[in-house]
């Protein structure tokens, strides 16, 4: 069982920038993608930039083919899909009720990027049994 409140996520600065740039370029729709890396260490090695199949400013849905490609890319490189990121175009970087309801995996990390203000704001969460816990984002391993 995943414990809440004692995790962190390491997202190197270049990958943080890649995620935020993708979210900005996806406007007016929500941007989304998958986090590739090592789930047990909370270490993100790369971000897979996915198409938002929902094509919406209020919803996102990772295109199935993108998931398949990301899964293969992760396997070839010896890591795994460890989470998902998406943007909130007009609200704060906090999981919406829909995000919580549809969160597929308690072991995943859920990264939110708010584009509500001029400067994007990124936060990360664990979601287990509908409970939300924010975790710190570190640019390198402590």
């Amino acid at each position: 069982m995943t414990e809440l409140g004692d995790s962190c996520i390491v997202i190197p600065a270049d990958i943080q920038n890649k995620i935020m740039a993708w979210c900005l370029s996806s406007l007016p729709d929500e941007g989304c993608g998958l986090l590739l890396g090592f789930s047990d260490k909370g270490f993100v090695v790369d971000a897979y930039l996915a198409q938002n199949a929902a094509k919406s400013a209020k919803l996102y849905s990772i295109d199935g083919k993108d998931y398949l490609r990301a899964d293969r890319q992760a396997e070839q490189n010896g890591y795994e899909i460890m989470g998902v990121f998406h943007s909130h175009t007009h609200t704060d970087p906090y999981p919406s009720p829909t995000d919580v309801e549809l969160a597929p995996d308690p072991n995943w990390h859920y990264v939110l990027v708010s584009l509500r203000h001029e400067v994007p704001v990124m936060r990360s969460y664990r979601i287990v049994d509908s409970q939300i816990a924010e975790e710190p984002i570190l640019p390198e391993e402590p």
């Binding site: 849905s61 998902v84 919406s96 995000d99 969160a103």
Partner: peptide
């Protein structure tokens, strides 16, 4: 056959 989780939210 690949079984994939449907990943979506709001």
């Amino acid at each position: 056959i690949s079984i994939l989780p449907a990943v979506a939210g709001g």
